[in-house]
Design a protein around this nucleic acid. Sequence first.
RNA 1: GCUGGAGUGGUGGAAUGGUAUACACGUUCGACUCAAAAUCGAAUGCCGCAAGGCUUGAGGGUUCGAGUCCCUCCUCCAGCACCA
Length: 791
Amino acid sequence: MHKRFDHKEFEGKWQKEWKETGLYDAGTRDQNKDKEYVLVELPYPSGNLHIGHWYAFAVPDIYVRFRRMQGKQVVYPMGFDAFGLPAENAAIKRSINPREWTESNIEYMRTQLESMGNAFSWDKTTSTIDPAYYKWTQWMFGEFFKNDIAYRGEGVVNWCPHDHTVIANEQVLADGTCERCGTAIEKREMPQWKLRITNYADKLIDGLDGLDWPEHIKEAQRQWIGRSKGAEIDFKITTPQNTNVNISIKVFTTRPDTLFGVTYLVLAPEHSLVAELQTQIKNWDDVAAYVQAAKQKDDIERGDNTKEKTGVKLEGITAINPANGEEIPVYIADYVLGGYGTGAIMAVPAHDERDAAFADKFNLPVVSVITETAVLKNSAEFDGMSSEEAKIAITQKVGGQMTNTYRLRDWSIGRQRYWGVPIPIVYDPEGKAHVIPKEHLPWTLPEDVDFTPTGEPPLAKSVELKERTERIFGAGWTPELETMDTFVDSAWYFMRYMDNQNAETFASLESQKEWLPVDMYFGGAEHTTMHLLYSRFWQKALHTLGLVVHDEPYLRRANHGMILGPDGNKMSKSKGNVVDPDEQVKLVGADTVKMYLAFMGPYENSSYPWDPGGVTGLRRFLERVNGLDSHITDSKPTETTSLLHKTIKKVSDDIAEFKFNTAISAMMILMNHVEKSGLTHDSYLTFLRLLAPFAPHLTEELWHQAGNKTSIHSADFPISNPELAKDDSVTIGIQINGKMRGTITISPTASESDAMSAVASTPELAERISGAEIKKIIYVPGRILNIISGI
RNA sequence: GCUGGAGUGGUGGAAUGGUAUACACGUUCGACUCAAAAUCGAAUGCCGCAAGGCUUGAGGGUUCGAGUCCCUCCUCCAGCACCA
């Protein structure tokens, strides 16, 4: 009969003990140890911990504890990303203050997080809504503004009509809807605060090479940035009134080698030249109608590449192909995008599918200039040149520029909402923007505000903000009314953790040198082209200003998947398939929930459905661990010793690769064995230390029951002895002519002739080869014996 | 369409080119019990009474030997996409 296993009894007890002794605090840097900074994405304090938080924080905790026990000075901080719309919406709905709502959520969520029993370094916590934190967010923005990394520019923005605010390109989903609320995004023309992430496009791509990140994440960022190499080429244009107007159209092309095949140009409908040429365009009414129609279309319609091409010829406008002097027509068409490249293309219908479709519809000539072997033809002096060489040669000849163009757009960070960091800008009576000096930071969020969204920023309603601005800066000065995108808040939080009390600077250079960069960053796949890209940019921007030591924030990264409902669907209240972690913890304990999540499959990339039966399996395992001390004996079978050391190696290797599932499986195999064969007291303690990162509460309890006075989590992780891990004998497969026919058990170092005689003394194998001529024997000691008999 | 990844039992999944299906769930049978739960023991890829044969999305190939490497194709997931 197993002894009592009551997780409620000891989990709370040990959590209290760990908290009181500050066991997991990172403290000051200990130069005798290697540091290891393990980071998880800081949560939004919604007020309720869900199973995804468990997956995101409790499973990496296995790695954290493992590295601690290996003697690293591990820091595993936790904090709160607490600005954002949910608080504001809750405030509107229940007429409460967003700050009060958020702070009480933080308080509650912290107790929930503590109930997970993770080795969080709570001494290094921070919260993005703390004025002592957002003071520095504002200060950094100011530095960026002074150095022209932040700017206010006119432009077309993504407007979410549901949330009444602008959102960044990264926050628009592929189907053109809002990442937050799913509403279809509208385009609006308005001035916007932006950050020049595009200036860092090359650095962001090139920096990926030095990072130990999974290739698919790097590739996703490369594609998001979307660098293409090509050339910008000017086409002079002529008009009826003035055959030699000094106007030209700049096009971007990745194929300057096909310049002799250009038979027309196409401008985006929104191209500025269209309006400029109004008086010269004979069919202006048709053109204007087309431009108007294009404006009405949303991105989804315009992005539909299956529909037939449309467009209008600009009658009276002619361009000159700089390669051969030929006059070619100019069109506008919505398949050319205003925001990419120069908003104008040279069309080569012979070598581009879209141009071909357009040429087909409008009966435009097609001139083939590239042979099947990628060599030029119909291209005057360039005939016979390779396509690659010609790209440079032709660009040079026509006075073009080799250049890169990017898919990435500047990051728009202004939000017409209340619950965020106020953009630290004031306008003088002439309307010129000025950064608020450091001595007036934090530039606090006013309290006298009505949050009801109207399309106008809520800060416009604050009398206090207006008065504050005039009092400090003078009469006629006005405050900026927008707040920042919350992705700004989370772009640099990992630095603040490591110097969270500093009132002089956001994080001293000493603290950066001591603790940064982040060694291991666990997080969700959804942040690949948002948070992860933004925060790399932020770091590089600070780096160019000399404010940070490192120019890449995160050395290693692993993306985890999602925990789905038992029905295999994403958990949602409407589907009624939500698993409540608090309930599960009550039922089976934190150790069981954590181990179940780790056991479902490899941690990286995959999503798994919650299986209530699977939880039972891990609970059973831990109950058996709880009773394992009844199997302690004095005898010491070598078989058990060997299995123990193999298991230590397997568990260590697997944790390092985040293959927690197979690590657990190895421990299960070991336990299945020792329950039958017994184990020594020493082996028992070794087993507990092996399991400690996975089941921190139970192992701590059993460790103390076994007479230890200090925490198991301060003990050393077991080290595998390769000598002791060796087996005396091993069962290997016997193949005859490549077919598996049986097994023999033999020493792993046995000779080929020993192996053959073992086969001869195994009747069913001997029978199969008797009388046959053996042509060849392949013997891999400890693995396989393959007998080729030629029959 | 492009890029990256994945297709293995009833389920989650395991396998440095070397005994495919570890471990766990589930199911079946048995023990314990008045009974049930819990627990313990046994069985469990498929076809077949058996001998035996077949099996890692499909088809080829390389190899003594392929889930693993190569080629062609199919399906699914993720990212990008009228990006010039």
